[in-house]
Simulated assay, not measured.
Amino acid sequence: MMKLKVIGILFLTLMLTACLYPDDQKVDHQPTNDEQLEEVQQAVHQYKEQNNGLLPIKNRDQDTPVYIKYPIDFNTLKEANIMGQPPANSYERGGAYSYVIVDPEGEAAVKVSDVRVNQQLRSINYDINLYRNKNLYPPYGDMIFKNYFELDHDSLEEKEPLKVKSPYTRDELDVIINVDGQPLVDYRPDVYKLLEEQGISEYDGDLRDLLVEEYPMVPSYSPPMVLEDGEIIFKEHETETNE
């Protein structure tokens, strides 16, 4: 009888612990924070200074999307005795974020890419390729801008449009495809919200840079965007890969 009581207490303790730490607060769901970013940023700068400007990054193909083209190689930092373990929320430790470098020729700023979004797109890309193998063309929906289309979810036998959760606002964002049939995230709602919050009516250059400046996350797998007459327009598509 006493053994059953002990088991019951242990079970109750585990249940209470689970309630105290819901899914969105577990390590792999924790958002990045300034301390983690600063720690990695200092490690990158130290490595760069000690290695004649070289960066501790993994090799990626030229076609890799620009914001995830320079992932940080934590093994290199560890071997150089600059940094021990990667941050707790990093992909290398089972977390939700891949640490990357943007502007490698200049500031070499450390940011993170939401791996959950990348994994969703990889799954969608698999379905697109299955459809293309049967039909010889991607599941194009209505054209949004030149070379960009809505994703025809009916063709993919999806009951509802495919969406991903924004790493910035946690709102649902549409998945679109470019002329090559590759899935991308439509970050326009996030950018419109940011433009409104900051009172920006004119902006020269790629609006994705505005997201990178404002947030620690990068808009991986997204089309270049510019502001024209108050409207966000997708630029001529980049080559994007979901490898």
Rank of each mutant, 00 (worst) to 15 (best):
R132N: 12
L12G: 00
Q50S: 14
P189V: 08
G199H: 00
D186Y: 14
N133E: 09
D186M: 06
N75W: 05
E79K: 14
I57C: 10
F145D: 10
S123K: 09
V66K: 11
V218S: 07
E49V: 05
L37Y: 04
N52I: 01
D171Y: 02
P86D: 06
K78A: 11
F234C: 03
D171R: 03
R188G: 07
D142A: 15
N133K: 05
A88G: 00
P223V: 06
R60L: 00
K235C: 11
A88I: 04
A18F: 09
Y192K: 09
I200P: 03
R60M: 08
F234P: 01
Q120C: 05
F74W: 15
Y97M: 07
Y221D: 07
H29N: 15
H153R: 07
Q120K: 14
S113I: 03
M83G: 04
K193Y: 06
S90K: 01
T64W: 04
R93L: 14
P161S: 13
L130K: 02
N52R: 11
M143P: 03
G199P: 02
P86F: 04
K48M: 08
K165W: 11
E38W: 00
Q42N: 09
Q42R: 05
G84Y: 09
Q198M: 09
R188L: 10
G95V: 14
Q36N: 04
D23P: 07
Y203T: 05
L37F: 02
E172G: 03
P71C: 12
S90H: 05
Y131V: 02
D23V: 14
S220C: 01
D209T: 06
C19W: 12
V212P: 11
Y203P: 02
N75K: 13
E39W: 12
L184V: 06
R122F: 01
V115Q: 15
L121H: 00
E213V: 05
D190R: 12
G205W: 00
V6W: 13
S113K: 04
I68W: 04
N59V: 10
V175F: 11
E92R: 15
I82F: 01
M143K: 10
V102W: 08
G94W: 05
E214A: 14
H45Q: 13
